[in-house]
């Protein structure tokens, strides 16, 4: 076991919890990973902020499965409410407000139901990750309006996959260890991002999108 970096020891001595320090050092790595997926692979998801914050929500819930359950519940309600609210022809913000209300109530119901079924893990999830997930609804509804249900579901799915992978990256023992010993390693993401920011090649999904053109050209 190598020694903890002096700077981290200083943080700890100042009263910052180790978990918090690691989460913060992990943030640039997850963000870079998402940027890589967008520029090189071509996975869009809901921008960079949403998958990032969902990853952290997953980390903060007790175990991945509850996080995924809440995520799916939120998206399902978002889809359902579109059809329920359509005949009312509501304006945008009130519509999102109603959807948020339904999502909030559903999650409350889930927590209670989980408790009643002795799944205390769910009920023990702290409130902040739940609130983060609820805000996912706005993103989802916005995309639904702009690009339609199909795109919204696809992007939600991509977000979910990225967040799950992000969760595993962030809880990867060796990486955590590396950051504890060499916290500066997180700055390596800067040159990587500069390279990504200058990358002008085709994205991997574009090779599929333009497959026929490339073949027939």
């Amino acid at each position: 076991m190598q020694t903890i970096s002096p700077i981290i020891q200083y943080f700890l001595a100042s009263g910052v919890p180790l978990d918090t320090v690691i989460l913060i050092l992990m943030l640039p790595i997850i963000a870079t990973f998402i940027a890589f997926l967008r520029q090189v692979v071509g996975i869009k998801a809901f921008g960079i902020y949403t998958p990032l914050i969902i990853t952290f929500a997953f980390l903060a819930t007790n175990g991945l499965k509850y996080g995924i359950a809440i995520f799916i519940a939120v998206i399902l309600v978002g889809m359902l409410m579109r059809f329920v609210l359509r005949p009312f022809r509501l304006l945008y913000l009130p519509r999102v407000a109603i959807t948020l209300t339904v999502v909030a109530l559903l999650i409350l119901f889930l927590l209670v139901a989980g408790g009643a079924m002795r799944r205390t893990g769910l009920a023990a999830v702290s409130i902040f990750p739940i609130l983060i997930m609820i805000t996912l609804v706005e993103k989802f509804v916005a995309v639904q309006i702009e690009k339609g249900n199909k795109t919204a579901i696809l992007l939600a799915f991509e977000t979910l996959v990225i967040s799950i992978i992000g969760y595993y990256i962030a809880s990867w023992g060796s990486l955590v260890e590396l950051l504890v010993i060499h916290p500066w390693a997180t700055l390596l993401t800067l040159p990587i991002n500069i390279l990504l920011g200058k990358w002008t090649g085709l994205r991997i999904n574009e090779y599929f999108r333009f497959k026929e053109v490339i073949k027939k050209m």
């Binding site: 002008t200 085709l202 994205r203 574009e206 333009f210 490339i214 073949k215």
Partner: peptide
């Protein structure tokens, strides 16, 4: 040939950046 032809395609990255 495939690689050569794929260089003729304009992708999102180069559309935006170049």
């Amino acid at each position: 040939e495939y690689i050569k032809n794929s260089r003729k395609i304009l992708g999102m990255n180069s559309r935006n950046l170049k």
